[in-house]
């Protein structure tokens, strides 16, 4: 039993290094989510504007971002920008740009959906009982939008964390790269470490995303009736 590959996890500070690697992807996704919530709300409001030009532009942006695999977008920013415009971005910066662009598109669509799902009579009844325009938004519209939006935004976070695993492919040293380093370093002493290390990463991702999606599910259920 002494030659079990799992011991590679506890050699030196390997496990801590893996966690640090995971933190890098999580940090990228948290920054991207924060930015995309801000821009997404703006985009969502912009999309409800009845100007045909704005409508067409937002539509094209949305469709293009959503139809392209995120990895293609990463390649476009990471390799494309450098070659065409001489802009040298680090892997992490280009990842944040790409995931913000993507998150903004997703979030914008969610905000738009929440906005148009509020029936017109809500505004009118609010006005009819003498609320000012600000009060209508403050007490009637925004609470309803938030209960619809918050679970979806939390869900977006888990999707973001999962998708940021792609940054390994543009050379960011995150959890998968750290894993490769550990596996290579122990190739002779622990030949079957790959199984254990990749298995660990699998569960690390699971335990990073699972609680978040549980919270989202619970909130969604709780606020369904409102």
């Amino acid at each position: 039993m002494q030659d079990l590959g799992i011991r590679v996890l506890f050699l030196g500070n390997n496990f801590a290094r893996l966690l640090q690697g995971l933190w890098i992807t999580i940090r990228i996704s948290l920054i991207a989510v924060a930015l995309s919530i801000v821009f997404g709300v703006l985009l969502g409001i912009l999309m409800t504007v009845k100007n045909p030009v704005i409508k067409a532009m937002t539509k094209i942006y949305l469709e293009f971002i959503r139809i392209m695999p995120q990895l293609v977008l990463l390649f476009l920013v990471f390799f494309g920008l450098t070659k065409s415009y001489g802009i040298n971005l680090s892997g992490e910066t280009s990842a944040i740009i790409v995931f913000t662009l993507w998150g903004t598109a997703e979030m914008g669509d969610l905000v738009r959906g929440a906005l148009i799902s509020i029936p017109k009579h809500q505004y009118e009844s609010g006005a009819a009982i003498g609320l000012t325009k600000w009060q209508v938004y403050r007490y009637v519209i925004i609470p309803q939008i938030l209960t619809r939006l918050v679970p979806l935004a939390i869900n977006l976070t888990t999707r973001m964390i999962k998708t940021t695993s792609l940054v390994a492919l543009i050379g960011v040293v995150e959890v998968l790269k750290v894993a490769q380093q550990i596996i290579e370093a122990n190739r002779y002493t622990v030949p079957d470490s790959a199984l254990w290390i990749y298995g660990t990463i699998f569960f690390l991702y699971f335990f990073a995303c699972w609680p978040i999606s549980l919270v989202a599910k619970r909130l969604e259920k709780k606020w369904k009736t409102t």
């Binding site: 999962k162 199984l195 699972w210």
Partner: peptide, 23 residues
């Protein structure tokens, strides 16, 4: 369902392709 929805495909592939051959 929980396991597959909360892990990225990339990590699943790494496990399948690089991890499993070790056993």
């Amino acid at each position: 369902i929980e396991l597959s929805r909360n892990t990225p495909l990339l990590v699943q592939l790494f496990f399948l392709y690089f991890g499993l051959p070790k056993v």
